[in-house]
C-alpha cells in the first residue's frame, strides 16, 4: 500500500512505452479487425448467387466397332454379368490399370436381397471383381439411401461383399456433400454426394430393375438419384424432368442394369417375394437411355410410350431410346 502522503513514483520511459504501445496495438487491432470484417451490403436471404462444382464426364470416346449395349441371359448372376461385359469387349475396354472406380449401387432401402429392391450383392461382387481384374487400384461403393445408411448397407448384403473384396464402402456423412452446378431442366444447383468423386477416374452405375409408383420404373438413369442430398422429396413434383436431368448430370463410363430378378410391382420398395419375377437378364451399356429402354419394354414388360422421362432424355439428345438402332449384342451365358 502506498502512503498517500508519499509522492507517487514516476514510471520509467520503458514502462510508459510498453503500456502505451499495448493500448495502441489493441486500438489498432480492433479497428483493423472491424474494418476487415465490415459487411457494407445487405443481401436477400435465399437469393444469393450460387456456385457449385461441375461434374466431369467419365464416359470414354465411343468405340466405332464394339457394341454400345449388351444383353445377356442365363441363370447364374456372375456368369450373366461376365457374359454381358464380355460382349461389350470386356472390362478392359472401360477400366485401365490404376483407375479409381466408383460403383454406384441402388441401396435406397433397408431390405434383404431377395426382395429385389436393392442392388444384389452377387451383382456387386461380379462387377467389382471384373473391375479389380482389369487392374483398378481402388473400388469405391457409394450411395445416399432413403432409409438409414448403416441398415441399408448391412441388410442389402453389400457390406459383406465390400469386406470380402476390400472395397471402400462410403457412408453419406455430413461432410460428404458439396453442391453441383448444372444446366438441367429442373436440376441446376443441388447438394451432391461428392466425397467418392474427389478421387474417381471411372464411374459405373449398377442398378436393379424396379417398378416405381410415381415414375413407373427405377433403372440405371433413376439410380443417380442416390448421389444427391438435400430435399430430394421435392423431386417428385417434376419427377420426369428430374430423372432425365440425371442423364445430363452423370456421364458414366458404364451402366449395368441387373434384371436377374425384377421388382414388377409395389415398387420401389417391394416387400414380398411375389412382387419379384425371375427374368435372368443383365443389360450393360454405355448409353443409359438405351439400356433403360430395353429394361422397360423387355424386363418390366411395359409400353415405352408411358415412360415420359425416357422420351425427354431421348429428345434432349442424352441417349437413344430406340435401342435396336444402337450397336447391340445379345448373348447366352
Amino acid at each position: 500500500m502506498n502512503n498517500p502522503s508519499e509522492p507517487t513514483p514516476r514510471i520509467s520511459r520503458r514502462e510508459f512505452l510498453l503500456r502505451a504501445g499495448a493500448a495502441g496495438a489493441l486500438i489498432a487491432g480492433s479497428a483493423a479487425g472491424g474494418l476487415a470484417m465490415w459487411q457494407r451490403r445487405h443481401f436477400v436471404p435465399g437469393f444469393q448467387e450460387k456456385q457449385g462444382l461441375h461434374l466431369p464426364s467419365y464416359s470414354l470416346t465411343p468405340d466405332k466397332l464394339l457394341p454400345e449395349m449388351a444383353i445377356a441371359h442365363g441363370a447364374e448372376h456372375e456368369k450373366v454379368i461376365r457374359a454381358a461385359i464380355g460382349a461389350l469387349g470386356g472390362m478392359g475396354r472401360f477400366i485401365s490399370k490404376g483407375d479409381v472406380v466408383v460403383i454406384k449401387p441402388n441401396v435406397a432401402f433397408d431390405r434383404p436381397p431377395a426382395l429385389a429392391a436393392t442392388t444384389h450383392p452377387d451383382a456387386l461382387r461380379a462387377v467389382a471383381r471384373l473391375v479389380l481384374e482389369a487392374g483398378a487400384a481402388k473400388v469405391l461403393v457409394a450411395d445416399n439411401p432413403i432409409n438409414s445408411p448403416a441398415g441399408c448397407y448391412l441388410k442389402s448384403g453389400l457390406l459383406a461383399v465390400a469386406n470380402e473384396l476390400h472395397l471402400d464402402l462410403l457412408y453419406p456423412e455430413t461432410n460428404s456433400f458439396s453442391p453441383i452446378q448444372m444446366d438441367g431442366e429442373i436440376l441446376r444447383h443441388w447438394s451432391f454426394f461428392d466425397a467418392p468423386f474427389k478421387r474417381a477416374t471411372k464411374v459405373i452405375g449398377l442398378a436393379p430393375c424396379k417398378d416405381h409408383n410415381l415414375c413407373h420404373a427405377s433403372m440405371t438413369m433413376k439410380n443417380w438419384y442416390g448421389l444427391l442430398g438435400g430435399r430430394r422429396n421435392q423431386f417428385h413434383q417434376h419427377i420426369h424432368s428430374i430423372v432425365s436431368d440425371f442423364a445430363l448430370m452423370m456421364k458414366p463410363t458404364l451402366v449395368v442394369l441387373d434384371g436377374m430378378n425384377v421388382l414388377m410391382k409395389n415398387g420401389p420398395t417391394g416387400g414380398r417375394l411375389s412382387d419379384v419375377k425371375k427374368m435372368g437378364t443383365v443389360v450393360a451399356g454405355t448409353d443409359m437411355v438405351a439400356v433403360d429402354s430395353y429394361g422397360y419394354t423387355h424386363l418390366l414388360e411395359r409400353d415405352i410410350a408411358e415412360l415420359t422421362y425416357i422420351h425427354k432424355a431421348n429428345d434432349r439428345g442424352l441417349g437413344n431410346m430406340n435401342w435396336k438402332q444402337t450397336r447391340y449384342k445379345e448373348v447366352q451365358a
Partner: peptide, 16 residues
Amino acid sequence: ETPCVVCEEVCPVSPK
C-alpha cells in the same frame, strides 16, 4: 395441383 406421392413411394409394406 402439384404432383408428389413421395409417401406412397416410401411406404414399406407390400401391398403398400
